[in-house]
C-alpha cells in the first residue's frame, strides 16, 4: 500500500468516526450546544413551533414565531395540526419545540382523572403532569373556555359579576344551550349543586351562535354558554360571569416548550403571555373572524403594539 493512499484511508476513517460520534451526540438527550451557549445569541438551532388547526391558536403561534425571529432565532412553522392526540406526541418526542396550548384540556390529556378546575389548580397540576423535558411556561390571563354569559343590561340590573351573584336574581332564569348541556355536570343541575339555584333550560342547537345571542337579547333566555374568546361576546355586549366554583375547566393560553428554548427565548415567550390579555385575545380573534385577516398580519400588528423583547 502506498503511503499517500494509506494516509487518505486514515483520514477517511477519522472523519467517519467523528461523524459517528457526532450522530451519537445528536441522538443523546443532552444537547451539547445548550451548555456552551451563554444564551446571549441564538444557538443556531431551529425552533419548531406548532399550532392547532384553530385560527386563535395559529395567531398565537405566529406571534411566538415572529417575536423569536426578530430576536434572531431560526424558527420553523408547523401549524394547523388537528387534534391533541396527534400533536402532543410530537411535542413529547421533540419534533415540536413550542406550542400554544390551553391549560385545562392539556391537563386532561395527560391526567384524564384530574379534579382540578380552577385556573391556579389547573396550572399547578399541569406543571406536575408535564413529562420530563417539557416546560410549561407562564400561563397567560387570556382564556378560551366555556363560560356562562348574560347581557350587559341584565348584569347591570342585578349587579352581577360571578355566577354566585345569580342567587340575587329572584326571577326564574332560563339557560339556552345545546341540548346536551341539560344532562351535563356543568348544566342546570351543576349550577344548583355549586351555586344553589336551578335554572330552567331550553334547547338552542347552534352552539352559542346567532340564534342564542338573539334569544339573550330578546330576553327569552337569560344565560347562555359562549367561549370566552369568542368575538361575539364583545360584539354583542355580553358579560361572561366568573365561574368561582370551577364548574368549567379553566383553560388559559399556556406555552409548552422543549429544552431547546434558551433563557432568552423563554423570557420572550413569557413576556408575550404576560402581555396577552383576555380582551386582547378576543380582539385578535375578531380580526380573524370579522376581517378574515391572515394570522401573519394579525400577529405582526399585535407585536407592533406590544414590547416583548427580553
Amino acid at each position: 500500500m502506498n503511503p499517500s493512499l494509506h494516509r487518505r484511508l486514515l483520514q477517511f476513517g477519522i472523519a467517519a468516526l467523528a461523524s459517528v460520534a457526532l450522530v451519537a451526540c445528536g441522538s443523546d438527550d443532552s444537547d451539547p450546544l445548550k451548555d456552551s451557549s451563554s444564551s446571549k445569541t441564538s444557538s443556531g438551532e431551529t425552533i419548531v413551533i406548532g399550532s392547532q388547526d384553530y385560527y386563535s391558536s395559529e395567531i398565537i403561534a405566529e406571534i411566538y414565531a415572529q417575536a423569536l425571529e426578530s430576536a434572531d432565532y431560526t424558527v420553523k412553522r408547523d401549524f394547523k395540526i388537528g387534534q391533541r392526540e396527534v400533536y402532543v406526541p410530537e411535542i413529547e418526542n421533540g419534533s415540536i419545540d413550542l406550542f400554544p396550548e390551553y391549560s385545562g384540556p392539556l391537563l386532561q390529556y395527560w391526567e384524564p382523572k384530574t379534579e382540578a378546575r380552577l385556573s391556579v389548580d389547573v396550572f399547578d397540576a399541569l406543571v406536575e403532569a408535564a413529562p420530563k423535558g417539557l416546560n410549561i411556561l407562564d400561563q397567560s390571563d387570556a382564556t378560551d373556555q366555556d363560560s356562562y354569559v348574560v347581557t350587559r343590561e341584565f348584569a347591570d340590573e342585578y349587579d352581577l359579576e360571578t355566577l354566585e351573584d345569580l342567587a340575587k336574581v329572584d326571577d326564574k332564569l332560563t339557560i339556552g344551550a345545546n341540548s346536551e348541556l341539560e344532562g351535563r355536570p356543568n348544566g342546570p343541575k351543576g349550577l344548583e349543586k355549586a351555586y344553589g339555584f336551578e335554572p330552567a333550560f331550553t334547547p338552542i342547537e347552534d352552539s352559542g351562535g346567532p340564534l342564542t345571542v338573539k334569544a339573550l337579547k330578546d330576553g327569552t333566555i337569560q344565560m347562555a354558554i359562549i367561549y370566552t374568546a369568542d368575538p361575539s361576546i364583545s360584539k354583542n355586549d355580553l358579560v361572561a360571569l366568573q365561574d368561582t366554583k370551577g364548574l368549567f375547566l379553566a383553560s388559559h393560553v399556556v406555552p409548552v416548550a422543549s429544552d431547546k428554548l434558551d433563557d432568552d427565548a423563554v423570557a420572550i415567550i413569557n413576556k408575550i403571555s404576560a402581555e396577552l390579555t383576555p380582551e386582547g385575545l378576543v380582539a385578535l380573534n375578531a380580526e380573524s373572524v370579522d376581517k378574515q385577516s391572515p394570522a401573519k398580519d394579525i400577529a405582526k400588528g399585535w407585536l407592533a403594539d406590544h414590547d416583548v423583547t427580553a
Partner: peptide
C-alpha cells in the same frame, strides 16, 4: 332546534 318541544328533543340530545 329552537324550542323545548316535540319528539325532536330525543334526537338532538
Amino acid at each position: 332546534y329552537v324550542a323545548d318541544a316535540g319528539l325532536g328533543r330525543f334526537l338532538f340530545s
